[in-house]
Write a protein that binds this DNA or RNA. Structure first.
Length: 382
DNA sequence: TAGCCGTGGGT
DNA sequence: TACCCAAGGCT
């Protein structure tokens, strides 16, 4: 059997990558990180001092694109309600979503719940140590699989998060936006090549602590940096321009009319679909959804008000309608301007036959599965 | 592949 | 104010 051209080319490419990766080998790098971590790293975060894979995994999912200070209270409340993977797997999804509300990226919460169920069913409640198996679970990608396995089981595997990208971009003066595919691929090779043979926990934690406390985005503490002598960005005085920032795009603006119907201490909420913004959360009913604001478009406010009025009438006899002050909320890729429209009704009609509408006690708002700005609006009305 | 997905903090 | 972006993954 003679190899095809394709497989020969593929083999050559793999050899080239292996050669490149071995040229990245650098044992002193990890030694410096490990030494620094033991002396100056963080050691008392709530999810440290344990190798319980459930706790490690929970923290890693919560920490995706989310800062430590934001995660801590959510992590504590979560553990209190769901002390182990069996408790989480058995919980109703509404309860899980309510515990996640306010933390953002709500797909993480649904994946977390699904993942817990799979770990119980497939692995008898024990997270696998193999990063390949971990990656097959929902919500766990390459980096999270490596972190969970390293912290729980001591597996030698590379992470590549924002901290590591920043450190690598600076120490090795890597040009190009780290979010782009070719740069990220190159960084994975580096991260893999730089792995130590032992002390993987200290090394992994050290990279993150290093990026979070020393090699920060702006004004890094180069004077205290153990890698200063080997940092190309420092030598070239380019720490301010590396890593290369994300190419900016024009911000989109959207507008939404949200309906506030409060009657006898209850507010009318609507269950949002699982996909899209605020997926799976409760929110206020909207007229026409979140509409992109066109420069030429004059909002047909009277038309929207008419629609709102007939919406309110489905729930009771409308006695009053008034707009509350506008507010805006910024997402990753658009800015939303909200006009809340409040109505009063005399008597409440029998519940409309759509399960997505729920009357919720105002006293329950604090613990409801609501997006942060909506929860805050409703609390201000209570 | 790059766009989508929240929220809060820093500058 | 406006912008960047953080312990990323999914499509």
């Amino acid at each position: 059997m003679k190899p095809s051209i394709d497989s020969a080319a593929k083999l050559a490419a793999q050899e080239a990558i292996a050669a490149l990766q071995s040229s990245y080998l650098d044992p002193e790098f990890s030694a410096a990180v490990i030494k620094w971590q033991k002396q100056h790293g963080r050691h008392s975060l709530p999810w440290q001092q344990t190798q319980d894979a459930y706790r490690v995994w929970l923290s890693e999912i919560m920490l995706q694109q989310t800062q430590v200070t934001a995660v801590i209270p959510y992590y504590q409340r979560f553990l209190q309600s769901f002390p182990d993977v069996f408790a989480l797997a058995a919980a109703p999804s509404e309860e899980v979503m309510a515990h996640w509300a306010g933390l953002g990226y709500y797909t993480r919460a649904r994946n977390l719940h699904q993942c817990a169920k799979q770990v119980v069913e497939k692995y008898q409640g024990k997270f696998p140590a193999d990063t390949t198996l971990l990656q097959q679970l929902p919500g766990i990608g390459r980096s999270t699989a490596a972190a969970v396995s390293a912290f729980s089981y001591g597996t030698i595997a590379a992470i590549l998060d924002g901290n590591v990208k920043r450190v690598l971009a600076r120490v090795f003066a890597i040009d190009g936006y780290p979010g782009s595919k070719p740069i990220e691929d190159a960084m994975w090779l580096r991260a893999q090549a730089l792995l130590p043979q032992q002390d993987i926990e200290a090394y992994t934690q050290g990279l993150m602590d290093f990026g979070a406390t020393l090699c920060t985005r702006s004004s890094p503490s180069c004077e205290r940096c153990p890698l200063q002598a080997r940092c190309l960005a420092f030598a070239q005085q380019r720490t301010a321009e590396l890593p290369v920032r994300k190419p900016k795009k024009v911000q989109k603006h959207k507008q939404a009319l949200m309906l506030v119907l409060i009657h006898e201490g209850q507010v009318l909420l609507e269950q949002r679909p699982d996909s899209g913004i605020w997926g799976g959360l409760l929110s206020l009913p909207e007229i026409g959804g979140m509409r992109e604001l066109q420069a030429t478009e004059v909002l047909a406010m009277t038309d929207q008000l008419a629609q709102a009025h007939s919406f309110f009438e489905r729930f009771g006899e409308v006695t009053q309608m008034l707009t509350l002050p506008d507010f805006s909320h910024v997402f990753t890729h658009f800015k939303l301007q909200v006009t809340p429209l409040r109505a009063s009704i005399a008597t409440r009609h029998a519940m409309v036959a759509e399960a997505r509408y729920v009357w919720t006690d105002m006293a329950q708002i604090q613990s409801a599965a609501l997006p942060a700005p909506i929860k805050s609006l409703l609390l201000s009305l209570a």
